[in-house]
Simulated scan of single mutants.
Amino acid sequence: MGLIRVVWGSASAPTAMASYDGALADANVHNYNLVQVSSVIPDDAAIEAVGVAPDLGPVGEQLTVVEARQTVVDGRAVAGLGWTTEPSGRGIFYETSGTDSDDVRSDLNQGLDAGQALRDGQFTDRGQKIVTAPSDTGDGEYTTAIVLAVYGESTPLV
């Protein structure tokens, strides 16, 4: 299958969409059209937490992602992505978000446990990334935290 990169970012801006776009820029995936999938990791996949994505192809192409995202006004945005895999590379992602990092961590662990219980297999590896983005300015700005699993490189839309 190839490489799945875990990237993350955060940003504040005067609108919710602008803060989301800024968080995508922080992770270097802002110039792609994101296509979300439901969290299943195929056989032979390798997961690498990189933080900031490298160049993944031409501007405007599509990227397949699993995305955790939280946007708030004058508060704390927390996004978390967890994963568990078998020796073959097959596995699942679980994404959640909120305003408290302990709650997000707990939700990730509970979600991964529940997902594993639904599937046959020997899940041996587990990882997670949680991003907390505080916005304490009180000026009505939006803050977004994101964590994405990016499958491979971009592909053309047309």
Rank of each mutant, 00 (worst) to 15 (best):
A117E: 11
G111C: 09
L157S: 09
V65R: 12
S101D: 15
G91F: 03
S38Q: 09
G89E: 12
E48D: 11
Q116S: 12
D103L: 11
H30A: 15
F93N: 04
S39E: 14
E61M: 04
G2K: 02
A13W: 03
L63F: 04
Q116C: 13
K129Q: 12
G57R: 02
A23Q: 07
W8V: 00
S39K: 11
S106V: 10
L112C: 01
T15I: 07
S12R: 12
R105T: 13
E141D: 13
L81M: 04
D107Q: 13
T15L: 07
S97C: 06
K129I: 04
V78R: 10
Q110Y: 05
S39R: 15
V35Q: 14
D125H: 15
G138Q: 02
R69N: 12
T64Q: 09
A68Q: 06
E95N: 01
V50S: 11
P42V: 03
G51F: 03
S88I: 05
G111H: 03
S10F: 06
V6K: 00
G22F: 00
A16T: 03
G60K: 04
S106R: 13
E48W: 00
D113F: 03
G152I: 03
S101H: 04
N33I: 15
G82R: 05
T143K: 10
I92Q: 11
S19W: 03
D107L: 11
V147M: 04
S39Y: 14
E141K: 13
R119T: 14
Y32F: 09
S106C: 02
P134Y: 00
G138A: 07
A114F: 07
S101W: 08
G138D: 07
G98C: 09
G98N: 08
T137N: 08
V7K: 00
Y151K: 03
S38T: 06
L157I: 14
T84G: 07
Y94L: 09
N31G: 14
G127V: 01
L112N: 07
T15Q: 13
Q122I: 05
A18C: 00
L108D: 08
Q122E: 15
V104Q: 03
A133T: 09
A77W: 06
T85R: 13
R119K: 12
P156S: 14
L34W: 09
G98P: 10
N33W: 08
Q110V: 01
I41P: 06
T144A: 13
S12F: 01
M1E: 11
S97H: 10
D125Q: 15
A145C: 06
S97T: 05
Y20F: 15
N28A: 13
D103H: 05
V72F: 01
T132S: 15
V35R: 09
W83V: 13
D139T: 08
S12A: 15
V35G: 08
E67T: 12
L34V: 12
L148S: 11
K129C: 05
W8G: 04
D139Q: 12
E95L: 02
G121S: 10
A149D: 08
D103G: 02
T124N: 13
G57I: 02
Y20P: 02
L108K: 10
G2W: 03
V66I: 06
G152E: 07
K129F: 00
R5Y: 04
